[in-house]
């Protein structure tokens, strides 16, 4: 398991380093050409989705399993 973790981290670091040397020809908007933009975006996106689904889940969505049994 630790080997897998190390491999994962090495790959991630490589992806970030490579990003500094890529020519961004197809950027849809300016921020996209910042190196590591998608790493940051992925981090925030995942946190946002987990946060929003947790909050909505506890407030409205999650019900007891016998909710529809009368």
């Amino acid at each position: 398991m630790t080997k897998l973790k190390i491999g994962f981290c090495v790959a991630l670091v490589l992806l970030l380093i490579v990003d500094f040397f890529i020519h961004k020809g197809h950027a849809a908007f300016e921020a996209e050409s910042i190196p590591g933009f998608y790493a940051i975006f992925g981090l925030l996106a995942t946190l946002l989705i987990i946060g929003v689904s947790k909050i909505l889940g506890y407030l409205f969505i999650m019900k007891k399993e016998d909710f529809y049994d009368d």
Binding site: A39, F41, L43, I50, M62, K63, F67, Y68
Partner: peptide
């Protein structure tokens, strides 16, 4: 790959908060 790697990293870090619960969705 950057996007997916970070998604995976966040999942494994926050795993203990993501345990499925016995529930149905309204």
């Amino acid at each position: 790959l950057q996007l997916l790697f970070l998604t995976a990293a966040v999942f494994f870090l926050l795993k203990k908060y993501l345990e499925p619960k016995k529930s149905i969705s309204l």
